[in-house]
Design a protein around this nucleic acid. Structure first.
Lengths: 133, 133
DNA sequence: TTCCATAGTTACCAAAAGGTGCGTAATTGC
DNA sequence: GCAATTACGCACCTTTTGGTAACTATGGAA
């Protein structure tokens, strides 16, 4: 426990702040600021799922993006990947506790989208009508 | 109020569902699933701001992306742009009521990121250590 | 006269996101 | 022997995102 006498540059164990570009909470935000990450987390909130089930639930995700996004979420500890190492493959994805804490907020966001998308559509139409086509 | 006798194709005024690729609530989600949109909305929650103030608050956004993102948010009715048409220019951005309803949820997300980014960092380090670096 | 300030725009470029299609492994059922 | 199954990996391509730098307008200050 170093008691350094002067901390000329250190931001004093700086308070976490998403507005601080050097704070890695930014990275956390950018991780979920992705088209598929949000939906995958929300989907897994309904329970553990296999690859094919997730594809069906998300509707139009490509195999590549699903795998890729799941890998990133697993890497960051939000999703748990259980590979039963059988042939044919049997892999089950589920939320970690941290992932579950996030899914609650994301479901609120989903509900916001489902509630207000009409207002957005209307605003967009109005904007495009008067301003540029 | 047309009482059509049969609706063979119409999804019965389908319940809004972010998992439905044809539901424009998807578009609403994707709008905010952007690095800067989330932060801009959160920043404007602190009050109306001018271009320069937003740049300072966000720390590392480029002028181009700030303008571009603000324009999209304005187009979708989340942000209000007030141009006083003076020289030098004086433009004030603020949240619309719909934008404000969103910002509440986004602030929860910000706080989630600020709370859990440490866990994500640790998980990432572990993952990279054992699996491919 | 020349410079500054503000909030842009535009052209140009690099990087990342995202899609399609093909190959793969080992076991089960035909 | 042969096909189907499942969850990928890889190569190739297009689109979107994002960054830098240069240019714009105009009234007031130096």
């Amino acid at each position: 426990m170093e008691m350094s006498r002067d901390l000329p540059k250190a931001p004093a164990a700086s308070i976490p702040d998403v507005f601080d570009p050097t704070c890695s909470s930014r990275h956390a935000l950018e991780l979920i600021a992705s088209k598929w990450a949000m939906l995958i987390i929300s989907a897994l909130e309904e329970g553990p799922m296999r690859n094919a089930a997730l594809m069906r639930r998300l509707g139009d995700v490509s195999q590549k993006m699903l795998t890729q996004t799941l890998k990133e979420l697993e890497r960051n500890g939000l999703v748990i990947r259980e590979d039963r190492k059988t042939v044919p493959p049997h892999v089950v994805y589920s939320l970690s506790p941290v992932g579950r804490s996030l899914s609650e907020t994301l479901l609120v966001l989903d509900r916001w989208a489902e509630t207000h998308f009409g207002a957005l559509d209307a605003a967009r139409e109005r904007y495009d009508a008067e301003r540029g086509k």
